[in-house]
Amino acid sequence: MTTTQTPDAQSKSRGQRFTSAAANYIDERTSISGLVKEVGRKIFPDHWSFMLGEVALYSFIVILLSGTFLTFFFQASMVEVHYDGSYAPLKGIEMSAAMASTLDISFDIRGGLLMRQVHHWAALLFVASIGLHMLRVYFTGAFRKPREINWFIGFVLFILAMAEGFTGYSLPDDLLSGNGLRIIDGMVKGIPVIGTWISYLLFGGEFPGVDIVSRLYILHIMLLPAIIIAALGVHMLLLVINKHTQFAGPGHTNDNVVGSPVMPGFAAKAGGFFFIVFGVITLIASTFSINPVWVYGPYDPSLFQQVLNLTGTSDSPTAPCDLFRPGGRPNGSVSPGRSTSLRRW
């Protein structure tokens, strides 16, 4: 008696028979029918602001997908190499393997630049949507009992997202990430009593050393994502246990939830919305450049990458001499790549 054959089994189509056989196979081994019964028609209230958390979740999935692609090409190593890729202005320049492989992803791998930009834009959207989601939860009071623990887990996720942002920002080992790391080094050194030693151990010696990129890499692609996924799992579980909050409205009471059931309305909307979020990120990534590391060049502790035009004119009497880039040096030793966007205040 291991089949679910019913008297009308013969009248079912092949597809139906296959589906019921497959469902039976799985249920007899997992008793998943209980779960489907419990949550399959769970009601989700509908309000645009409930999308913000969804955006965060979906952009995180996009980050995981694009990031996995990037790991296949990225070399988390600070070994000095001479760049020999197809970006001519930096040819022959000494840089770390991390920077060189970032340039290779951008200029020699088809779709590599697209994936880098998808990853970066999705990361920005991730943090931004977490921020907005938290504001929504805060201002609607949705953090109150019994949801305090979930609010705290969300807060931890926010911090972890920023940690992911920082570690990812540091990986290409370009001028921007080097200066970012230097600021972090300064902050770590400022920790009372143990700061000097933490910085020393973190960087494997003096700043910047040759270890930090590979160390941040393992945090960025394994440890932090694992913690985020676990915390997200608990976040979702508690959401299901506590049920969603809802706005006041006719027929809405403290004791009910009004909305559409997971199967099929909410699943279609949420699943479709994942594709919309993914699509919009891809659209932005394919049309707007972000973090052009080739403009900044490799890290040099005495250079700064940002050129802010604050005064508007270069002949202003208070215009400071631009020491950001070595392009204007009197001896004429212009480092290619860094002089491309030489501007003066």
Binding site: R110, G111, L113, L114, Q117, G272, F273, F274, F275, I276, V277, F278, G279, V280, T282, L283, A285, S286, T287
Partner: peptide, 18 residues
């Protein structure tokens, strides 16, 4: 490469989503 590959994928994703 970035633009047209990206636009194709965008269309593929937004079509399903919308």
């Amino acid at each position: 490469n970035t633009l047209f590959l990206g636009l194709g994928i965008t269309l593929g994703l937004l079509g399903i989503g919308i």
